[in-house]
C-alpha cells in the first residue's frame, strides 16, 4: 500500500499522511489537533482531493495551528508525492470551459 507524508509537526504547520485504500472504498479523513477549525480543515482537504482527483485514500491531518494556505500547500505536496497531479481546472469547472 502506498503511503506518503508532507509537512512538519512545528507550530503553525501540519503533518499530512496519505495512504492508499482498496479501490472503491472511498476517502477517509482523520484530523488530530485543529480544535475549532475541524470544519474548515475538512472543507480544504475535500476541495484539494477533488482538485487532484483522488479517491480511495486515507488522509490524516495532524494540525498544529496551520493557516489554510499552509494546509493547502502541505496537502498539495503530499498528493504530488503520492503521484497525482492536479486535475486541470476545466475538468472541475466544465461550465467555465463552455463560457470560454
Amino acid at each position: 500500500m502506498k503511503k506518503v507524508m508532507a509537512g512538519t509537526p512545528e507550530s503553525m504547520d501540519c503533518v499530512i499522511v496519505v495512504e492508499e485504500r482498496p479501490r472503491g472504498s472511498g476517502v477517509s479523513l482523520t484530523i488530530s489537533g485543529g480544535e475549532r477549525f475541524r470544519a474548515a480543515i475538512t472543507d480544504t482537504v475535500m476541495g484539494m482531493l477533488e482538485r487532484f482527483g483522488l479517491t480511495d485514500v486515507d488522509v490524516h491531518v495532524q494540525d498544529n495551528g496551520a493557516r489554510d494556505v499552509v494546509l493547502s500547500a502541505r496537502l498539495e505536496a503530499a498528493f504530488v508525492r503520492y503521484g497525482k497531479d492536479p486535475v486541470p481546472c476545466a475538468r472541475l469547472c466544465p461550465e467555465r470551459l463552455q463560457e470560454a
Binding site: 475549532r36 477549525f37 475541524r38 470544519a39 474548515a40 493557516r67 489554510d68
Partner: peptide, 9 residues
C-alpha cells in the same frame, strides 16, 4: 480573513 471560520463552541 487569516484564520478562517471557527467551529462554534
Amino acid at each position: 480573513e487569516l484564520s478562517g471560520t471557527m467551529d462554534p463552541l
